[in-house]
Design a protein around this nucleic acid. Structure first.
Lengths: 221, 221
DNA sequence: GTCTATAACTAGATAGAC
DNA sequence: GTCTATCTAGTTATAGAC
């Protein structure tokens, strides 16, 4: 059946891409893992590139729909606080990591931000653009007084942080031989992320009164 | 001369790896860009993998040496504050981005954190391990009262944020059509990063008094 | 040390039978 | 829709002349 073959290819491709990256993963490996024929990829998707983009769209479209749903719920709520907005943005990807089969895709998603291929970047941009725009306006509303440029960079920090967490890059754990923490516990991670990011977003902008003054900007400099 | 050929290969490889990734970059392209023969790579490095690791070691070793130098200066200073410690850690990579030829490597470095190849991960771990350990102890000293597990995650956030910035993934700019900011201005980025991260690191740990209490951890849960 | 030539292999894509 | 068989082009790596 065509539907099943297509799904099997998508599932196998997702797992192998997450493990090995795109270039290392051959269509032969994908079709072998999926238990289908090599030619099935070209029949259903047309090319390897089109398969890659289909793998992303299958997960990102519903994830971003859920983000917007939560954003609207947050806007409708009586107390629309910063923490709730962070959760609306960061919750769906982190929760996706908990669902069966979601963990591998989330690793792939985290890495995709730094993928140099311009075709993939263009495809991702189309998938993300409307969601980011909506959230940017919401953050601006809940952080009045923050200059637009500063807000832009702080959202950059949030996105980057989320990308790194999702990538599972676990560099620190490898290095610092830390056995304290369970990287799979996304609820705990989300709580820590929320606290850290909320404090960072609320920090006074550099150069504003009462804020931590960067070196060289103080009156004695 | 052997020395020149070797350097030319390293320089060309660095630029092409940063632009295209490792797999997409062929030894043919590297040697063509370097103006040397294809066989020179195998003569000087032995294999493509060994070349990749040499590209990283050439920049990371001095960068981490500079980090440790600043850490020691910070420890010797009268007022060893959190902001200074963040600068000692984040300064060298961000300043490397400003130096001629450094920008391309920093992009490569940012992406390397999420590279799935276990051989590269092992090589990077060996290069980073002693530095991260030293900084972890220093951060613990300047943030007393923060539980070790919470500290671990917050340093994770710092590392991830830095990795994303270095990767130049600029996803937000592509998406939000933001023309406000100059990504090349690393001094400004460092000031923003410093303020954001310092606030995040100083935030009360989830579950501690007077802090933002995560959902489900309050007394009514 | 550097080169040419080529071996040995692997990739994505396709034609055409069923 | 699915298969086998194959094409074409690209890769890393090496042998051996200079």
């Amino acid at each position: 059946m065509g539907r099943d073959t297509r799904e099997a290819v998508l599932r196998a491709a997702e797992a192998l891409f997450a493990e090995q990256g795109f270039r290392r993963t051959t269509l032969r490996a994908i079709t072998r893992a999926a238990g289908v024929n090599l030619a099935a990829v070209h029949y259903h998707f047309g090319s390897k590139q089109a398969l890659i983009e289909a793998v992303f769209a299958r997960r990102i479209v519903p994830m971003n729909r859920e983000r917007l749903r939560r954003l609207e719920a947050w806007e409708a709520a009586a107390q629309a606080d910063l923490e709730g907005l962070i959760d609306a943005f960061a919750g769906p990807p982190l929760e996706l990591a908990r669902r069966p089969g979601g963990a591998v895709f989330v690793r792939l998603l985290g890495r995709s931000y730094t993928e140099p291929d311009p075709r993939l970047q263009a495809a991702l941009r189309d998938l993300y653009e409307p969601v980011i725009e909506r959230f940017k306006r919401a953050f601006a509303g809940v952080l009045p007084g923050l200059p637009p440029e500063e807000l832009y960079w702080r959202l950059h920090f949030l996105v980057g942080l989320l990308a790194y967490l999702m990538s599972g890059a676990d560099l620190m754990r490898l290095i610092a031989s830390c056995r304290l923490c369970e990287p799979g516990d996304t609820a705990a991670i989300q709580a820590r992320l929320r606290g850290f990011v909320a404090a960072g977003l609320r920090a006074p902008a550099p150069g504003m009164a009462a804020g931590p003054v960067p070196a060289g900007a103080a009156s004695d400099g």
